[in-house]
Computed example of a mutant assay.
Amino acid sequence: MATLETKQGALEFTTGDGVRIAYRLDGSVDKPVLLLANSIATSMDMWEGQAARLKEHFRLLRYDYRGHGGSDTPAGPYSLDRLGRDAVELLDALRIDRVHFLGLSLGGIVAQWVAIHAPERIDRLILSNTAAHLGSPELWEGLIASVLKPGSMPETAESFMKNWFPSSMLTPDNPIVKSFREMVLATRPQGIAGSWAAIRDMDLRRTASLIDRPTLVIAGEQDPVTLPEHGELLAKTIPGAELLVLPSAHLPNVEMESAFIEEVTAFLRRL
């Protein structure tokens, strides 16, 4: 698995099925590694606002899903098994045995898969604004068909903004919302459609009970995507899991950055 320099200091490795995945590894080598996994239709830059404070305590490993950011976009659909193996193969390529794993939205689904199938790779687990199962296949089929229509990305981006941020942030001059809109518009439609197919086909409502890592589940009171009850179900299913409900929409790492970082850091550094 070759590693080489790419744009803006990112690196690449090649997965077992020949897909180049972009990643970054930042911070002091004497700190524990924290693997961050993103929401769908974003890149590893989703965590840029929180990176400086998190690096005070952790060495940060970020990466772009296939079809996202600086990674390749193979033909879809994608499977959760493949997305999970991408994360495990990244750790293999870097010879990292264990990490803390923080996954948000789709990242939380990938993190669940890794915790179920490769629990020895995880120390502590944080599942933020995510679910073990999300809606009927018909819902996702409609979304997949819509995003693959030519010229659909501006409408798709606006839909994401309304789902991710509270109305108070959705102003024309908000630089945070603007940066996230640009991330969505830079994502290839096939990357979004392929990842939605993985969500369409996944159901971890029973297998999540196999997770034996210390786990914190974070939910948003006003999250219209992964509802508070999705987080409540996850916390009930995973033995010993803790539940934290924040007064946020879908991206508490952005909307409530200080509170989010404080809670994450406290959980991950707990003896």
Rank of each mutant, 00 (worst) to 15 (best):
127 L>E: 03
86 D>Q: 09
147 V>Q: 08
115 A>V: 04
81 D>C: 09
103 G>W: 00
76 G>L: 12
94 L>K: 15
142 G>H: 13
118 A>D: 05
125 L>K: 11
134 L>W: 08
142 G>Q: 10
81 D>S: 12
79 S>N: 06
105 S>V: 00
123 D>Q: 15
109 I>G: 01
107 G>R: 00
98 R>K: 13
89 E>T: 14
76 G>R: 04
80 L>D: 13
146 S>G: 14
124 R>K: 14
105 S>M: 02
121 R>G: 02
118 A>R: 10
117 H>I: 04
111 A>W: 02
108 G>I: 00
94 L>R: 15
72 D>Y: 13
114 V>F: 12
104 L>A: 01
142 G>L: 14
93 A>W: 07
142 G>Y: 12
91 L>V: 04
98 R>P: 02
117 H>A: 13
96 I>W: 13
142 G>V: 15
83 L>E: 12
114 V>P: 12
130 T>L: 01
144 I>R: 11
98 R>S: 07
133 H>D: 02
147 V>Y: 04
91 L>M: 08
109 I>C: 03
101 F>V: 10
146 S>W: 12
85 R>V: 15
91 L>A: 05
74 P>L: 03
91 L>I: 05
117 H>D: 06
97 D>F: 12
123 D>A: 09
87 A>N: 14
143 L>D: 00
138 E>A: 15
96 I>G: 05
144 I>T: 08
117 H>E: 07
128 S>V: 00
140 W>C: 14
118 A>Q: 06
95 R>H: 10
119 P>V: 03
87 A>H: 07
88 V>L: 13
97 D>V: 06
93 A>R: 03
143 L>V: 07
85 R>G: 09
85 R>H: 13
117 H>W: 13
75 A>S: 15
146 S>H: 13
134 L>R: 08
143 L>W: 15
130 T>V: 01
116 I>Q: 09
109 I>V: 15
116 I>H: 10
129 N>S: 03
